[in-house]
Amino acid sequence: MPFDQKRINGPEVSVPYSVYTDVNKSKSSKPKKSLHKRVDGREHKDLRKIFVKTGVISQAKGSAYIEVGITKVVCSVFDPREIPNKNEYSLQGELFCEFKYAPFACAKRRIHQQDAEEKEFSLVMQRSLEPAVCRQEFPNFQVDVYALVLDNGGSSLAAAIMCASLALADASVPMFGLVTAVSAGFYKDTMFLDLTVEEEVLCNSAPAKPNPPNNHGLIMQAALPQHDQISEFFLVGSINIDCIKQAIETLTVANKNICPVVQQCLVKTVLRALKRKEQEKN
């Protein structure tokens, strides 16, 4: 870790205690168990329970909070501002996205600066949201979106994208539609929907035996379910093309199933705002 003059510096090197626990037991038995039935009792194509709420940050123009299982993400959207270091005239505005894990969010402690994974996730998040935002309504300006993962229970990127979409709608940024996102993982011929952290680790590792099927990898698909459009498809790993087709169909259905949750949250937000206006009149 580099020396940081703006913070209190602790030890130069620190290792989490979990490295020294017995890994062999869990590693050998876990794949066999989760391949038949998942640890938390879900079926392979079930989603975890979702809680969403808007208007959680008063300083931001729009904000949202989402819980998907253990994963907790908070997102804030700020007013259009000038794009730094830009002199060209452009008809489209820009979207600035920052994806960040809190230091306490993962099993291993994260540093305060963005690392390579977070920067990549920021770009993925930006590509997911750009098709949905009417960027021609604020030319030459940039809308800031900040997503902070408070607890990483798996599928944090998908949760952050949904949270950002809600926050943008809460901020009254014009949008063509709402963005929902679901992630999936493959291990051999088994597909997991809405992964947990353990399942993500499992799908990221290649199977031990070299016999086919040899699939392993993670997929994140963001979509506009109201218009049957996919805004981002993010794949890491090695997966057969037939399995990818199957995954796209499953993820599209899952995105459609999630969309009513987001819509109802927005309707509640609007009704709450209308009630507040009526109370102010009286």
Binding site: A132, A169, M175, L178, L224, Q226, H227, L266, V267, V270
Partner: peptide, 10 residues
């Protein structure tokens, strides 16, 4: 009663 809508609603 007001008609409430969300982005992308037809």
């Amino acid at each position: 009663e007001p008609i409430v809508c969300v982005p992308g609603q037809r």
